[in-house]
Simulated scan of single mutants.
Amino acid sequence: MNEVIERILNHRSIRSFEDKPLTEEQILTIIECAQAASTSSFMQAYTIIGVTEPKKKAALAQIAGSQEYVEKNGHLLVFCADLHRHDVISDMENKDLSEPLESTEKFMVACIDAALAAQNAALAAESMGLGICYIGGIRNNLPAVADILNIPSRVIPLFGLTVGYPSNITDKKPRLPLSNVYHLNGYQQKTDVFSDELKEYNDSISRYYLERTDGTRSDTWTGQMAGMLEKKSRMYMKGFVEQQGLNKR
């Protein structure tokens, strides 16, 4: 097993960081690694916003559910799906590109491009001995995030990425069984097999939480998912995305 694979398999989210900022060299290297990611048709349809102003970080932390590590970290990055620069291209090349830019396909391209870039950034950071945590909680209130970060039309902030020096490293969280995720030559629709595998997975997740919390928590994965999904959350999203001029066709 090589060092890259070991690094990937050793990943865990870090939610407690030392009070130590990243150097400019570290930040720029992480961004360059993000830019090296694959991009659909060379569109490069994303933007990364670094947030260093304490008031802005505090505001974003509040939006994300009062998560302290969004405010206190080595550096905070916000990854955005971005077709705004392609609007600029429309003017530069004197072409009406509004229909394709408003399509679901191009919205998906922008989201995928941003996710690929972010994972490159995360791997680069971890290879430096840093820890990371993805922050989906900024989507709790994207209009407010857009105001804080001066977001233009055809841009959607998707998630944050906190990076820094870990002050506490938790145990690695077990993932789904491989056979539940990897299907050969087509989707294997065997609900009874899925259910049996998920029951076994529930046991491993319960053990993980029991050990991590000294017996105060014993959630199952399916119970977590059912509890999360039954709550109506971020139901404003479709309207906000369309308001930004994306995913309208």
Rank of each mutant, 00 (worst) to 15 (best):
N2I: 13
E3A: 07
V4G: 09
V4R: 11
R7G: 13
L9K: 13
R12C: 04
I14F: 11
D19N: 15
E24V: 04
I27Q: 08
I31D: 02
I31R: 03
A34N: 01
A34M: 02
S38T: 10
T39W: 01
M43K: 13
V51Y: 03
T52H: 10
K57C: 07
A58H: 10
A58F: 06
A59H: 03
Q62S: 14
Q62D: 11
A64C: 07
G65H: 06
G65N: 05
Y69V: 00
Y69A: 01
V70G: 02
V70C: 01
E71A: 14
E71L: 02
H75E: 15
L76S: 05
L77D: 07
A81Y: 03
D82T: 08
H84C: 10
H84M: 05
H86W: 15
H86I: 06
I89T: 13
I89Y: 14
S90L: 08
D91L: 11
N94H: 11
K95M: 12
D96T: 06
L97K: 09
L97C: 08
S98C: 07
E102R: 08
S103C: 05
S103K: 03
K106S: 09
F107H: 00
M108V: 10
I112V: 14
I112G: 02
D113R: 04
D113Q: 03
A114L: 08
A114P: 07
L116Y: 06
A117I: 00
A121S: 05
A122Y: 00
A124E: 06
S127A: 09
Y134N: 00
A144Q: 15
S153G: 09
S153C: 07
P157L: 05
L158M: 11
F159R: 01
G160E: 00
G160A: 02
G160H: 03
G164I: 09
P166I: 00
S167A: 14
P174M: 04
P177V: 01
H183V: 01
H183Q: 06
G186C: 11
Q189Y: 08
D192V: 06
V193H: 12
K199H: 14
E200R: 10
E200W: 07
N202G: 00
S206I: 00
R207I: 11
Y208A: 00
Y209S: 05
L210N: 09
L210E: 11
R217V: 05
S218I: 03
T222I: 11
G223S: 10
G223P: 08
L229M: 15
L229C: 12
E230Y: 09
K232F: 07
K232Q: 10
Y236W: 14
E242M: 13
Q243L: 09
Q243K: 13
G245P: 05
